[in-house]
Design a protein around this nucleic acid. Sequence first.
DNA 1: ATAAATTTTAAACAAACATTTAAAATATAC
DNA 2: GTATATTTTAAATGTTTGTTTAAAATTTAT
Lengths: 203, 203
Amino acid sequence: MKCVTEKSEDKIREAAKRVFLKKGFDGTTSRDIAKEADMNIALTNYYFRSKEKLFLEIFKDVLEEYFQNMLTILNKDIDIKQKISEIIDNDFAMMKQEPDLVIFIMNEIHKSPQRLFPDMSIFRQVRETHLKKQLEEGAANGTLRPMQLENILPLIKCGVEFIFMGKEIHKELFMMSDEDFEKYAEEQKEHIKAMVCNYLVIG
Amino acid sequence: MKCVTEKSEDKIREAAKRVFLKKGFDGTTSRDIAKEADMNIALTNYYFRSKEKLFLEIFKDVLEEYFQNMLTILNKDIDIKQKISEIIDNDFAMMKQEPDLVIFIMNEIHKSPQRLFPDMSIFRQVRETHLKKQLEEGAANGTLRPMQLENILPLIKCGVEFIFMGKEIHKELFMMSDEDFEKYAEEQKEHIKAMVCNYLVIG
DNA sequence: ATAAATTTTAAACAAACATTTAAAATATAC
DNA sequence: GTATATTTTAAATGTTTGTTTAAAATTTAT
């Protein structure tokens, strides 16, 4: 019995991720996780010692998942307009694939930030990215509006993430069905690309 | 004994709002609320019948609080650039005064949308606002890029709300202190105003 | 002043909670 | 094949949960 059956530890980890993302830490019980993993309730603590430890392990993975693809794009040696477009497309794809991810991260960090920041080397990687150099060069030679990474990056990300985080309220507010929203989100994505690029790139 | 002492029902309502906003529905216990209100645990159910009913009542108020000021500005008969600026300033002030409000609304609706939308007449009011007419007129006479209300409104609101919802992660990611963040948020606010107006207003 | 209605209290309720136990089942080592 | 180590199980642990109870305190009405 090698890889035909998945290891119990991994089954629990994956089930826990699904449940935590959907219900949050406070809304998730050990029994929810055991049931989702189709395993005995005691195994959660056998493998991970506590609900808290299991959560922290998963949260770290989720936070890295959130930054990893973006980081790869930020470091590509491509035109800045193209780079912004790719980040937004990537964000958009991520929100469609994992609709719970961003609101989960935001909410958990908001509720207890101190508990959730371990040695996050990924943060340093984001700060020291190739985009930073592009911004400095562009500002120096007058092709880009002078802006810091910390100013432009949220402007790139907020548009897509905001409408997906608030998908249900936007649907209700503007009386959209699920398919209406899908079309709307695509429109919005293109507005964001154009708006941010127009603002950053001079001429 | 008229207004010298606050009515118990209101004390509980206000305490519950503070606790719910901070900890969310799942993270809040009836005892948390009773303690915050400095009242006996049984009074929550005496006045509101259940934690759920108390929550729904408060959520409705909070959602209206979120939209009310914006709605007033949306209906003012002022220049569209000025209007956008005022909405953003208003959003900014709201996020400073009630930092938990937007992430609370987003997260609760995300977790269980069906349960939280009663007869929200405020939604209709937002859809039928004076800004909508301004957008139509501007598109017709070529002064504004043709855009629907549902496209421009999130672009106006997402910038400020996103950085405040993610205040702690932005502080950690960009190594900012609280006062750094305050300065940064002000910068960001001006970027957003300029970016959105540049995009919407032609010429 | 007294009776009735309302508000507040301490105590209790069963259900759900995270976690632990110790035995049973299974896999691994020799 | 037997002994040892690992994994899984059902059951129980003590706490905390939302809610209820019934009596006590207080306010209101007559």
